[in-house]
Design a protein around this nucleic acid. Structure first.
Lengths: 270, 270
DNA sequence: CGCAGGTTTGAGAGGAGTCAAGGGTTGTGG
DNA sequence: CCACAACCCTTGACTCCTCTCAAACCTGCG
């Protein structure tokens, strides 16, 4: 694959990298990642104490993933594809027939990636780490076991998938009806909420240590046009992105520009 | 709301139409609609005989919906929002702040619309009937009851939601990386499959009794541009749309043009 | 230091939107 | 029956957004 980038060079080095992850497991059971995930689930509706306990006691392994490393189809043999993101930023991607990569979803810490692959897998759902990330990988077996022991979990996971679908739907609306400036503004409003910054705070700052072409891919524009769009929002005084950090001085104005309605992000709001 | 149309007239008549459905219930229990839905579910994975029976015995009411009629938030009081489409074509829509309508998903006969609202509802998920449609509306109570009696159903519904999410994801890819001609071609390839036309048949014909501006909205272009795009595909000999009927003489070529890979439509393939 | 890659900026081209006009169809009322 | 309106569809001209191609700049690194 290659990014839709200025120089359009196919990076053979990366294409030839080994298909399985080769990173050291770094111990630890359960821990922060699952706790964050459970908090998200809790915001979506009723979660019984038994379900909470079952989730928090799920076994798994922490793994560090290098930035720009892909998680292929069978990422962690015998570990399954359910990854709770603890730190960093990951994305689901799709490489089209020409080999150009498009990011179809972003994942922030506390998100569970690939959860619905246990329900149904529509072809290869591939993940890539946009930044150095730490994940908690849950094996398939114990997850199925937990579903058997706590049948209510299926509903909970279904609910979670539905909430992620709402984000997808908003992306469709964005791509279908907003121009590049609005799409960028909308994504920034969304990421601010998903990073846990309360809506009440009008100014926001959060890390986004991406390359330009990665963010460009997330809003479906070329890096060149992203550059111009960033410039436009910068002169508006609405968005600054330096040293891998986003600064939004005025989220209200930004939200108005982007037609942003946070209703679909209930699971991230406190 | 108003469609993004040539004359840009807000149709007050429709906007003022009563918010609740006023169509005659037309009797019948279970029947065709649910059977089609169950067939879809069956293709997604294991469905036990008990679950199948529980689904098929779900109570509900058939309703006819006029073309262009909206199904508002609380469509059928005390009936819930789970509608199995038996005949016709429906769509989920989103009216943006300017009142312009965008279709975010199409529903063909056998689809269950709004199923995931029972899991989690991200704001108003509104439906509209693109053509005269017949639905089977299932009340919320019996559905929850069935979920209690057959806990495995939650997994099944979760799986179904995931499969619908795959269609959404493909839409994101379409909007992000294909131009109008490819998007139209892609949607036609998809609809042919979802109408149950076997992939092996290279030529396809299926009904699509829509107005131009409705289809335009589904692929996110203006009706004027759709008109041009239809002309282009017509001169290519790939797509003809007359009298509410789509004719695709060469699905292979169309699929190649659109970069269409039917893998994500497993639940519609036989 | 040179090089490769990321980033920005500019000029030109093309896809898609907007505005506008014209023809076709349907429905309604005189 | 006809006139008229309303709506739908198509086509053309113009404009704007975004892509492509290209060049220049910057940065980190071998």
């Amino acid at each position: 694959m290659h990014w839709r980038r200025a120089d359009a060079v196919i990076r053979r080095r990366r294409a030839c990298s080994p298909p399985t992850l080769r990173n050291r497991p770094c111990g630890g059971r359960s821990g922060l990642a699952l706790a964050r995930f459970v908090v998200q689930l809790g915001r979506l509706g009723s979660l019984t104490e038994a379900e909470r306990k079952a989730l928090l006691s799920l076994p798994g392994q922490y793994r560090d993933i290098r930035a720009k490393e892909d998680v292929p189809d069978q990422p962690l043999p015998a570990l399954g594809r359910m990854l709770v993101l603890q730190d960093g930023l990951m994305a689901s991607y799709h490489d089209n027939i020409a080999g150009v990569r498009h990011l179809t979803a972003l994942h922030v810490p506390g998100d569970m990636c690939g959860l619905n692959t246990i329900a149904w897998s529509a072809g290869p759902t591939c993940l890539t780490a946009l930044t150095r990330s730490r994940i908690f990988a849950i094996p398939c077996g114990p997850m199925l076991e937990a579903l058997r022991a706590q049948p209510g979990l299926a509903t909970t996971f279904w609910r979670y998938s539905s909430s992620q679908m709402a984000i997808q739907a908003e992306k469709v609306i964005s791509l279908g009806s907003r121009d590049a400036k609005q799409r960028l503004a909308h994504l920034m409003c969304e990421l601010a909420v998903r990073h846990g910054l309360p809506l009440a705070e009008n100014a926001a700052t959060f890390p986004l240590p991406l390359a330009r072409h990665q963010l460009a891919s997330a809003i479906c524009v070329t890096p060149m046009h992203l550059s111009r769009t960033l410039g436009a929002l910068r002169t508006d005084g609405l968005l600054f992105w330096t040293d891998g950090t986003i600064t939004l001085p005025n989220r209200d104005r930004l939200a108005r520009l982007a037609d942003f309605d946070p209703g679909y992000l209930a699971m991230y709001l406190r």
